[in-house]
Amino acid sequence: MRKLGTVLAALLVIMTAGWAGNAEAAKGIVIDGSTTVGPIAKSFAAYFMKKYKVPVTVSESGSGNGAKSLINGSCDIADMSRSMKPQEIAAAKARRINPVANVVALDCLAMIVHPSNPVRALTEAQIGDIFSGRINNWRQVGGPNFPIVVIQRESNSGTQETFKELVMKGRAVVSGAETQASNGAVKNRVSQTRGAIGFVGLGYLDASVKKIAVNGVIPSAATVKNKTYRLSRDLYMYTNGKPAGVVGTFIDLPKTPDGRRIIQELGFVPKY
C-alpha cells in the first residue's frame, strides 16, 4: 500500500511537471508544416530561443498539414513551400482565421540524379516527359541505355505541388513513380539508385547527388535570385492575421542580418 502511495505521488509530480511544461510551451511559438521550410524554421527557432528566451516548437509534416494546423488553430505559424489554395483560404475564413502569407526566402526545385549519371542538362519539356512516363530510358535524353527510376514526393508535399504546377502543367505523373515522404528521403534514394531522378529544395543539394541544369541554367543562389532558373518559388510562413508580438519578431527575422546569414548558410536564397 505504501509502495502504491509512493508510485501515485511520483505520478502526480510527473504529471504536474508535464502540465506546467505544457503551460509554458503554450506561451511560446508553435510552428508546423513544410519539410522544405523546416530547416529554416528550426535554425530560426534555435536562434530565437537563445536571443529572446521564448520557446519555439517546430514540426515538419508537409505544407498541407501546416495549412491544416493553422486552420485548426493548433499552430501559430504554418511553414509552406507553396501558396495556400483557395479552398484552404475559404476553410480558414469559415473558422475566422485570416491567413497572411509572409515570404521567408527563395528556393528552387533542383533536379537531381545519381552522381554516376553522365546526363548534365535537361529541358523543362524533357523533365515533363520523364515524369509523365513518355521518356523512360536515359538513352532518350543522351545518357546511357538504362531505365529511368522516377522519384516523386507524396501528395502532402508543397514541393510536389510546386513541381506539378511548374513542370507537369496538368499532366499526371507516371503511375510507376516511386513516392518518398521528405526531401531527405528523395535525396537518399537518388544517391543510392543508379537510374533515379528526383527533385529537392536548394538546401538539400550536396556531393551525394548530381544537380542537373534546367534549360541550360544550373540551380544556385545566384540563378534563383536573378530569376534565370525557371523552377524557382517563394517559401512562406503563414500566420493568422498580420504577425504581431513575438510571432511578429520571429517573422521579421529574415529581414535582419542574422536571419539572412542563417538562410544563406542553409543553402536558401534570402529575399530581402
Binding site: 498541407g64 491544416k68 479552398q87 484552404e88 476553410a91 507524396e154 510507376g176 516511386e178
Partner: peptide
Amino acid sequence: ESVRTLTATIAGDMGEADQVTG
C-alpha cells in the same frame, strides 16, 4: 518493382486529405 499498399496510402495521404480539399 515498386508497389503501393493500402496501409501506406492511408498513412501517406491522410495529411493532405480532409474536408478542406474535397
